[in-house]
């Protein structure tokens, strides 16, 4: 575990933007930190589209949206005075993506939380940061909660949950 390596999981939401801001605010002025903005790709469900073309178009749209989000947030970190060389981005593709570029590691789509923790463990991140949307008990049962799963399953790292 490397304590100066921070992994911020982002999904394109306001909650994840808040998590990035929080990290930037804490790290500004510090030296020798590495911040990685990580996105685990979650494509729109293939079955909700009438054909493959429509689905592929939606997948392209999703990727463009996240690419823009990653780029905006990288810039936001720079605006805090943090050198660009301290910040990187990582986009983990879905194994089912029609745009796949044959990555070394892809997300099988069963658990975002486990994908995040896999990256954290493999690349020795000391801190994992995630935004939280705040769900009711019933919503957690039905939809699951990435942040709760990370809290319960994460090991050998510090976890920051930004509400």
């Amino acid at each position: 575990m490397e304590t100066n390596k921070i992994l911020v999981a982002i999904d394109g939401s306001e909650n994840s933007k808040r998590a990035v801001e929080y990290v930037a605010d804490i790290v500004k002025g510090c030296r020798d930190f590495e911040i990685t903005l990580l996105h685990i790709e979650r494509l729109p469900d293939r079955d909700i589209f009438p054909d493959e073309e429509a689905w592929k178009k939606a997948c392209v749209g999703h990727r463009q949206k996240i690419d823009a989000f990653l780029s905006d947030n990288k810039q936001m970190i720079a605006d805090y005075g943090i050198p660009q060389k301290m910040v990187s981005t990582d986009y983990v593709e879905s194994c089912h993506s029609p745009l796949s570029e044959d990555p070394a590691y892809c997300s099988r789509g069963t658990s975002i939380a486990h994908d995040i923790l896999h990256v954290a463990e493999k690349e020795h991140f000391g801190t994992v940061v995630i935004g939280r949307r705040g769900v009711s008990k019933a919503e957690e049962f039905m939809f699951g909660s990435v942040s709760n799963k990370i809290i319960h399953s994460g090991k050998d790292c510090t976890i920051w949950v930004v509400q």
């Binding site: 069963t110 039905m142 939809f143």
Partner: peptide
């Protein structure tokens, strides 16, 4: 029927 749940794709079936 289908729906787009990411973290718990089978939650609704189990419920």
């Amino acid at each position: 029927y289908t729906f787009d749940f990411h973290e718990n794709p089978f939650g609704l079936d189990i419920f």
